[in-house]
Amino acid sequence: MTDPLSASQGIIPLPLRSGTAWINALADSPALRRAAQNPETLLNQVQLIKDSRSTRAGIGTLESGIRVFIKRHNNKGLRYTLRYLFREARPLKAFRAALALRECGVKIPMPMAAIVFRKARILGLSYQISEALEGGIPAEELRSRLANEPGAAEAFATEMSLLLAHIHAKGIAHGDFKFSNICSIKEGDKISYGLWDFDAATLHKGPLPLRLRRNDLARLCSSYVELGIRLGLPPENESAALELFLAPYERAANMRFPRDSMLAIMRHHLQRKRKCLPK
């Protein structure tokens, strides 16, 4: 398999025993290289955030003292093995998407390394390492702001819609643009927003087609409605919530979306979460 990333992109391929690590030159250090050579050592020392059949992830510290996020993708069996015989491993795909998003000026944790172990093309464990986000606002504080501060929900929806329109124009689909994948950062008295979790992101040549734009938008709106059901966020129904995000997106992208089809996709996402829609 050929290297999908090169030194011309500021990426340093690091050969490993039965694998390869791709190091972001902006984050390169002896400590990061040692972690890339034996990522399990770092992972065993982290404060766990997630531990499931698919992934294991947490926040840890490199030998240099830099705080990082590390995520391992597990090989889940025969179907997984066959699927990734010739496909790019998820951490590498996410790494590529993160680099593209940073190039577009989107605020995201710096991607530091992608590590993939293969033997005779068979994908084993694979990892991604990025900087640990500092200055983030706890999710509950953000939700409280959206629910209680006048105009906060509208300002949030506008900023997220404009961000989404921007990355779509650059040919990037996030793939899972939901509330929990939006990071909020305090900068003085202001709050700015960025993104994380790019496992489902895809890169395309030229602006995204309507179908991919619609999917990201509907996922964002359904996630907001799901949160609103529990917290009483404005507005009070899914049609109004859709308009909250869709109107600024349409102005920025200079295109129109059929409301009926957008609502249908939103309901599909909500039903998958087994949430009751507001009437």
Rank of each mutant, 00 (worst) to 15 (best):
D51A: 13
L16N: 05
L212N: 03
P15V: 05
E40T: 13
L270W: 02
R211S: 13
E236I: 14
R72F: 01
G151H: 04
D199W: 00
Y193N: 10
S52D: 09
K170Y: 10
R87T: 12
S6H: 15
L246Q: 08
Q47K: 10
D197N: 05
I167G: 03
S54G: 11
E140L: 11
F179Y: 13
L210Y: 14
A57N: 01
R87F: 08
P150S: 05
L14Y: 07
L244K: 02
G124D: 02
A25Y: 07
R230P: 03
R267Y: 09
L164M: 13
A173L: 07
R53S: 07
A25M: 07
I115V: 15
P109W: 00
P150L: 08
I167S: 05
R34T: 09
D189H: 09
R118Q: 06
R79Y: 09
L231H: 05
E149R: 10
S18R: 11
A7M: 12
L101Q: 08
V106T: 13
T202R: 15
L163V: 06
D216C: 07
S64P: 13
R214N: 07
L220N: 02
G77R: 05
L233V: 12
E187N: 15
R79T: 13
Y193Q: 08
S223T: 11
V225E: 06
R83Q: 12
L212M: 09
E134M: 09
S222A: 15
E134Y: 01
D3G: 02
N254E: 15
L263D: 00
H174C: 10
K119E: 12
D189I: 06
A57G: 04
N181Q: 06
G171R: 07
P209Y: 07
R274D: 14
P30H: 08
A201T: 05
Q47R: 06
L220A: 05
G77T: 03
E140H: 14
D176W: 04
E63I: 09
I49H: 08
L164V: 08
G58S: 06
I185P: 05
S223W: 03
R214C: 14
